[in-house]
């Protein structure tokens, strides 16, 4: 049996690949959950066993009704994330290129950062109604800030030597933006988008909790109101899978767009 050289990672010799460890941890976790529920005879209202949750989730999937709600939440999240990306990257590039403007706006950016934006959700529902518009707005706003801040950071982190190359070959401001600032900032932008996409889902779901009658967030609230904890868990599992897919999408985009960067390995 071969033992890999782990001298650079400070870890001992490996006996199994890491994903086996992850699976083991999951099995232990679900096992203790199941054991706890059975052993102490916990009420289904409080904590259903994982097996029941899985069964309920599979029922959802074949039922079809859940797909409509999934579509709504996906649309809200996707649109919010798209708008946040366009606005965040666009404005971020601008602010990154204009340090004076950035310093001028900085207090306001910080102020809006520290406001717990989820607390504004009821307000947006008042303003934009119970339809999907209010959710898209919330998803946009939540995802916007990390994308903006990371883009600004990316533009400001452009290597001086690279800028001088562009100056020495007489690049126009527009050429600098498209050939240097943007590609050089991409690792930062994508980091912002990774954070942003998760916040988009949170925004959409919280919006659905509070207003309207569609979407996975709304479905969760409905199950809560009928004390169907098992179904509630199943919705949570469903939402987690959706969140994971969104996140995996952005990570995939990273690997595709910036294979040259260390973060893509």
């Amino acid at each position: 049996m071969s033992v890999k050289d782990n001298s650079v990672t400070m870890e001992g010799p490996t006996l199994f690949p890491p994903w086996i460890g992850s699976v083991l941890i999951l099995i232990v976790f679900l096992g203790s959950w199941d054991g706890y529920v059975r052993l102490f005879d916990v009420s289904m209202l409080v904590l259903p066993p994982p097996s029941a949750v899985v069964v309920q989730w599979l029922k959802f999937l074949v039922d079809g009704n859940v797909w409509y709600h999934t579509g709504v939440t996906t649309l809200e999240t996707g649109l919010g994330f798209l708008f946040a990306s366009i606005l965040g990257v666009g404005l971020g590039m601008l602010l990154g290129k204009m340090p004076r403007l950035e310093r001028m706006l900085n207090p306001f950016v910080i102020a809006t950062q520290v406001v717990p934006k989820v607390a504004l959700v009821p307000l947006f529902i008042v303003w934009f109604g119970f339809g999907i518009t209010s959710k898209v707005v919330i998803a946009t706003i939540l995802a916007f800030f990390p994308i903006l801040l990371n883009t600004v950071l990316g533009v400001k982190s452009v290597e001086r030597g690279h800028s001088e190359v562009m100056a020495s070959i007489n690049a126009s401001p527009m050429q600098r933006l498209t050939q240097l600032d943007f590609p050089s900032s991409l690792p930062y932008i994508l980091t912002g988008m990774e954070v942003g996409v998760v916040l988009s889902i949170i925004g959409a779901v919280v919006g659905e909790y509070l207003g309207g009658s569609v979407g996975l967030g709304n479905l969760a609230v409905r199950e809560m109101n009928t004390y169907n904890t098992t179904a509630l868990f199943a919705v949570i599992v469903h939402l987690s899978v959706l969140g994971f897919l969104f996140y995996a999408f952005v990570v995939g985009v990273r690997k595709y767009l910036i294979p040259w960067h260390g973060s893509s390995n």
């Binding site: 290597e159 690279h162 001088e164 190359v165 240097l180 590609p183 910036i258 040259w260």
Partner: peptide
Amino acid sequence: MVFQEANLFPW
């Protein structure tokens, strides 16, 4: 101009 560092664009 050739700089002290190569300053190639990694992308």
